[in-house]
Amino acid sequence: MRHPVEEIVEVTGWTGGVRQGREWADVERDIGTTLPADYKELFSRFPSGAFRDLIVVTNPVDARTDYPRFIGEEVFGILEILADEELEYLENADYRLFPDQSGLLPWGHDGQGGMLCWITEPADPDRWRVAYYAQGMDHWREHPGPMTEVIREVLTSAGDDNIFGWTLGELPRVFRVPSIHLGDGRWLPSPEYR
């Protein structure tokens, strides 16, 4: 079986790159844990963007990333939202939040209010599972991981055999940097990605 990152590159036809802006050691220190190797490998090849317009991710080492926003909002801000008992994200779910052992740690979203998180157990981050919260359906789904396998499955699936449980049909199998939709299927990349 091929490595998921190589298949993701092939399926999307991605030929762009990353502008290194910081070291992984700094990101891991700021988050408070070692991150999975596949995540770091993926972001050595891809900047921030969206896979199949469904999985939206931010590359924390890319120089174009607003790093304080990433740490403050996309990591710890999401953890605060998940912890808000009034919002009931964890009601009827057997999850804790990072930094607790086996706590949820966000790594992406679906652009529609759904969240993708690692389940931070066991101690080896390369064995972390993935949990997805479906906004509007008020439930969690799990995938055995790693996160690049979740992305690969979403890119190659036509049916509902993916973490979302959605029939993906003819959605384009692309990676799109942060862009503005112009209509008629046209997209304009944000200035820093042109």
Rank of each mutant, 00 (worst) to 15 (best):
M1N: 10
R2C: 09
P4F: 02
V5C: 09
V9A: 10
V11Q: 09
T12A: 05
T15A: 03
G16H: 08
G16L: 08
G21H: 05
R22H: 07
W24F: 07
W24M: 14
V27H: 11
E28A: 03
I31F: 08
G32F: 14
T34C: 07
K40L: 07
S48G: 02
A50G: 10
R52P: 01
V56W: 14
V57N: 04
V57L: 15
T58E: 12
T58P: 00
V61T: 15
R64N: 08
D66W: 01
G72I: 04
E73K: 11
E74S: 12
E80F: 13
L82C: 10
D84G: 10
E86W: 12
L90V: 03
E91H: 14
E91Q: 15
A93H: 10
D94I: 00
Y95V: 01
P99V: 11
Q101H: 04
S102H: 06
L105A: 09
L105V: 06
G108I: 12
G111E: 07
G113V: 13
G114N: 03
M115L: 14
P122D: 06
A123K: 11
D124G: 01
D124I: 03
P125N: 04
D126K: 00
A131L: 03
D138S: 11
H139S: 04
H143V: 00
H143R: 01
P144V: 10
M147Y: 05
T148C: 09
E149G: 08
G159S: 15
D160R: 09
N162V: 03
N162Y: 02
L168T: 14
L168E: 11
G169E: 10
P172H: 03
V177L: 08
P178C: 07
P189C: 11
P189M: 02
S190H: 05
